[in-house]
Simulated assay, not measured.
Amino acid sequence: MQPVFKRHGTAFLLLLPTLVILIFFLYLPTIQTFIMSLYQVGFLGLSKMFVGVENYQIIFTEPEYRDIMVNTLVFVLGSVSLSMALGLAFAVLANEKVTGARYYRLLLIWPYALPPAVAGVIFLFLFSAQVGIINYFLGLIFGITPDWLADPELAMTVVILSTVWKNVGYNVVFYLAALQNLPGDVLEAATIDGATGWQRFWRITFPLLSPMTFFLLIMNTIAAFFDVFAFIDLITKGGPSNGTTVFIYAIYRDGFEYFKSGLAAAQSVFLFLLVVVLTVLKFRLQKKVHYAN
C-alpha cells in the first residue's frame, strides 16, 4: 500500500495544529497538575511550599475526605445501577412493535439532549419544599411534605434521581441498538420451545447483551465521577452538612472557594488515576465478555 504523503514533513505540518492544541491545553496542564499536587499553594499561587505526598495523605486520612469518598461511592453505585436498569427496561419496551414506537423512543431519549444545568434547575423546582410539585402530590395523597434538600440522605436521593433522569436516554440508545441486532432465530426457537417472556429475557436476551452491558457499565461509571458537578452546584451546593459533596465538587470547592490549589490538584490526580484504572480494566476484560458461552 502506497503512503498518502511521500514526505513525512507534509503529514507532520497537517498534524501540527492539533499537536499544538493538545500540548498546551491537555498535556502541559496535566503535568502541571501532577506537580502542583506535591505543593501547598498559597492564595492565587503567590507562594508554594513542597509538601510531598501530604495532600494525598489528607485525602485518605481526614474524616471529611473519607466522608466525601463514601458520598462518591454511594452516588456512583446508586446512579449507575438505577440508570442502567431503567435504560434496559425502557429499551426492551421501546423495542416492541407498537403504533407510534418512534415517538416513544424520542420521548425516552430527549432528556439526554438537555444541558445538565437545565436538568438541575428542573429537579430543583420539582423537589422544592415550598413550591415543588413532588411535595404537592405527596401532601395530597399521603399528607407528608418532606424537606428534600435539608436532609443529607434525601438530598443525595434527589441528586441521584436528577442524574438518572438526565442520563437514562444514553443507555436506552445503546441498549435499543443492541436489542435490534440480536439474532431473531434464537428468540423464535425459544418461543417455539415454550419459554415464557421472562425466561427468554433472562436466559437469552440478557446474556446476549453482556458486551453492551459491560461497555455501558464502564462508561456510566466514568461519567458518574465527572458529570454530576452541575447537579450538585445547582441543587444542593454540596450540602446539607457536606452530605452531597463528591470528589468533583470538592475539587471545585477546594480550588476556587478555599484556594487550596495543591489539595484540589491531588484530588484531580486521584480521579485521573481512577479513570485510568477503569479504562485499562475495560480493555483487559472486554475480550472476556462475549455473546456465546
Rank of each mutant, 00 (worst) to 15 (best):
N55G: 06
M212C: 13
F50T: 10
N55W: 06
S47V: 12
G194M: 11
L22Y: 11
M1H: 04
V159A: 06
V76D: 06
V118R: 05
M69A: 13
D147K: 04
S79R: 05
S37V: 05
V159S: 07
N55H: 01
S241Q: 06
K97T: 07
R66F: 15
V80M: 12
L126M: 08
P63L: 15
D193W: 03
Q286F: 14
Q2T: 03
G243D: 00
M219T: 12
E188C: 01
Q32T: 13
G262A: 13
F12K: 04
N171W: 05
F125I: 01
S261W: 09
L209C: 07
V20W: 10
V172A: 07
V74E: 06
G45F: 05
I192C: 03
K287A: 15
S128V: 00
P63Y: 13
A89S: 09
W202N: 05
G132D: 04
A178N: 02
V121N: 00
G42D: 00
M219G: 02
A266L: 13
V186S: 01
S47P: 10
L28K: 03
M212E: 10
E64Q: 07
T245C: 11
G78S: 10
Q57K: 08
G255D: 03
L86F: 15
L14F: 12
I218G: 10
G9R: 07
I251V: 09
M156Q: 02
Y136D: 03
A224S: 10
I35D: 12
G45C: 06
A85L: 15
L278V: 14
Q40E: 08
L281H: 07
A91P: 09
D254C: 04
R102E: 14
I122Q: 05
R105L: 15
K287S: 15
P240C: 07
L234F: 08
I133R: 05
V269E: 14
L149N: 01
G45L: 07
G238A: 02
P240F: 05
L73G: 04
F215V: 12
R284H: 10
G52R: 08
A223P: 02
Y56S: 11
